[in-house]
């Protein structure tokens, strides 16, 4: 699947960044990050704290503007386009700290997600109430089925702020899936959850891949990376240090010397 000499993915890039930079008060959080995210695969974005991983995700999803560089979904340029435009191109994201819509029920959280709902327009509200009702029923059925898959069905009528931390994590992913993504950016989907749940979430992510979704996930746990990710991007000090399979990166002495050595050994010895 990967070209063994260059480590670049043979598949087409679903998402690409070219020389992205972003500085906060003169400090470069991202300093020329460039990488391709292969289509239909699970890619891990790893690197030490402060490497700029979350900033990259924020820039790609439109939550933050970058200072220079360009980003593409397929061939469509998305550099500094607003969040909602990027989401409508099929790129959905989750947040490192779960951001549930606390005042809404779990089911409502799901129902917010679909794009272009007929019922978001006043004209339809007046003229086509039947269409809205039908669409609502369809969305609700799909949402309930998804909630069942993610083990949240029994909590469908609970206000999201009353969920436990792990349940919020699950809801965060389920809500993004509800929006029918082609590309999903997951910001530490398994941080702070128990091992059983890590297993479960890993299964969901693989399942998404099997349904054709391209996944880019920030992850610290190299066991997880080894188990489910096809491809790894290493960021350090805001730059792309290396890309490739985890096994290849272990053999890359530069990477190991520069930073990865301990982390990978520690990860492998578990």
């Amino acid at each position: 699947m990967l070209d063994s000499t260059t480590g670049r993915p043979e598949r087409a890039a679903a998402l690409r960044c070219e020389g992205i930079t972003k500085a906060f008060q003169g400090v470069h959080a991202v300093n020329g990050a460039s990488f391709d995210v292969p289509e239909g695969q699970i890619t891990a974005l790893i690197g030490p704290n402060g490497a700029g991983k979350t900033t990259v995700v924020n820039i790609l999803s439109g939550a933050m503007r970058c200072d220079s560089g360009r980003a593409f979904i397929g061939t469509t340029e998305i550099t500094n386009r607003p969040s909602h435009t990027i989401a409508r191109l099929g790129l959905l994201r989750t947040f490192q700290l779960s951001r549930e819509l606390g005042g809404l029920t779990v089911l409502e959280n799901m129902l917010v997600a679909p794009a272009d709902q007929a019922g978001e327009s006043f004209v339809n509200l007046l003229l086509r109430p039947g269409l809205i009702e039908r669409q609502e029923r369809e969305h609700a059925e799909r949402a309930l089925a998804l909630l069942d898959t993610y083990g949240l069905y029994d909590h469908r009528d609970t206000r999201a702020r009353e969920l436990s931390g792990g349940q919020k994590k699950l809801l965060e992913i389920a809500r993004a899936v509800m929006a029918s993504p082609t590309i999903l950016l997951l910001d530490e989907p398994m941080a702070g959850v128990n091992p059983a749940l890590i297993e479960l979430i890993g299964g969901y992510i693989v399942d998404l891949k099997e349904h054709g979704v391209t996944v880019l996930m920030i992850e610290h746990n190299l066991n997880v990376v080894e188990k489910i990710c096809d491809y790894v991007i290493v960021l350090a000090e805001g730059r792309t240090l290396a890309t490739g399979r985890l096994s290849e990166l272990r053999e890359n002495t530069d990477v190991v010397k520069a930073y990865l050595g301990e982390v990978i050994d520690a990860g492998a010895s578990h």
Partner: peptide
């Protein structure tokens, strides 16, 4: 519902399109 989503967290609402 979309209004309330924006009220609760506008960043999330924007990220959902």
């Amino acid at each position: 519902r979309t209004f309330r989503a924006i009220r609760d967290d506008e960043v999330v609402a924007a990220a959902l399109g």
